[in-house]
């Protein structure tokens, strides 16, 4: 058996054991999500308008991650709205910053991998860089909003009479914790993903100035920053949306 297949099977079994039906749905969300990335690559390679592809797939990916990944409809609905609003803000920022940073395309270090590939591909790599940046941040945004929403609703579930003030106080504490750890996820995720590049810089004794102007480093560093900004915006927005809607529920009950 192929390693990939074996790992896919292992994950499926584990997710069903731990998560039951929700686990199965989460598994599907991961698989669909991965397939969506491949589909995006295919569509772009066929010459479909990149911005159009991005506009269709961003909400689609958020829907997959959030609705399939969680079993509670209230959690999903609230997280999706927050995540969509945050994504829109972050996208504007990404488009603006990428214009100045010009990190599209491949770095000088990629020479070996590009042998035999035609680089006059006739599609805009700066636009692809924007799509990459947006996609990398979507996961972090969705995750933070789900964690925040789920935590607050769980609290509400155990004490339906909790006041808005108590909820906000707890939200502050929870937000702080989630922020810290979400930032760690992003940081270590990228440490892992770009370890070979950092080793490259150090083996070849790049100076700080060279690293700070290197296309790949700047591109990577900016993606980390976009993800941070996405998570940072998610925390207060979730709290605002949720305490408002929970407070509205109260008189009815």
């Amino acid at each position: 058996m192929n390693t990939l297949t074996a790992l896919l099977l292992l994950l499926l079994v584990l997710m069903i054991i731990v998560g039951g039906k929700t686990g199965l749905k989460s598994y599907l969300s991961v698989v669909i999500n991965a397939c969506l990335v491949i589909l995006v690559a295919l569509l772009i390679s066929w010459g479909v308008n990149i911005i159009g592809v991005a506009l269709v797939f961003i909400p689609l990916k958020l829907l997959t991650i959030i609705y399939l990944g969680t079993h509670d409809y209230t959690v999903a609905k609230n997280s999706f709205l927050t995540a969509l609003v945050v994504s829109l803000i972050v996208i504007c920022l990404i488009v603006a910053i990428q214009f100045f940073a010009q990190t599209g395309g491949f770095g000088d270090q990629a020479g070996e991998e590009l042998v035999g590939l035609s680089l006059a591909a006739g599609i805009s790599f700066p636009q692809i860089a924007i799509v990459v940046a947006i996609f990398s941040t979507l996961g972090a945004i969705a995750e933070a909003s789900v964690a925040m929403t789920a935590g607050l609703l769980e609290l509400k579930h155990h004490d339906p009479l909790i006041t808005k003030k108590q909820l906000e106080k707890n939200a502050l504490q929870m937000g702080s914790d989630i922020l810290g750890t979400a930032m760690n996820t992003i940081l270590f995720g990228f440490f892992g993903s770009f370890l070979p590049l950092f080793i490259w810089y150090m083996r070849l004794h790049y100076s700080l100035f060279e690293v700070l102007n290197d296309k790949l480093f700047v591109g990577e560093c900016l993606i980390i920053m976009y993800s941070f900004i996405g998570v940072l915006l998610t925390i207060p927005l979730t709290t605002i949306f949720l305490t408002r809607s929970l407070a509205h529920d109260q008189p009815k009950k």
Binding site: G19, T22, G69, G139, A142, E154
Partner: peptide
């Protein structure tokens, strides 16, 4: 909680 969090 874990079920909610792990997928995302």
């Amino acid at each position: 909680l874990g079920q909610e969090i792990m997928g995302p």
